[in-house]
Amino acid sequence: MNDFLLIFRRDANFDLQLTPAQMQEVTKPWQDWMGSLAAQNKLADSGNRLATDGRVVKPGSIITDGPYVEVKESVGGYIVIRAASLDEAAELSKGCPILATGGNVEIRQILPMQS
């Protein structure tokens, strides 16, 4: 088994428009999906959500406001899962609720540091 980082990208404006009650409704599918991964013992790290605001530091002490790519492709959060292969990790990602709101999941294998 290897660890894979799942990076969730979506339109950052989407979250801002939600009422608390709608937010609750958004949370439930995430709990169901992550609960399902965890029940298979494939959730390695339940990860975190990320705030929409950000800063980018560039050479020459230049600091700019984020988001930097397009707002529609803003990183909203991440988790780490266990899978036998990149293909399996991709298969497991098909149930991710980010897809239902037009977002996407990027899957990258984590390579442990050589000591």
Binding site: M34, G35, A38, A39, L43
Partner: peptide, 13 residues
Amino acid sequence: VLQLYNKLLILEY
């Protein structure tokens, strides 16, 4: 109960 088991599993398998 389902949501609580989700939470429990996410915390610890």
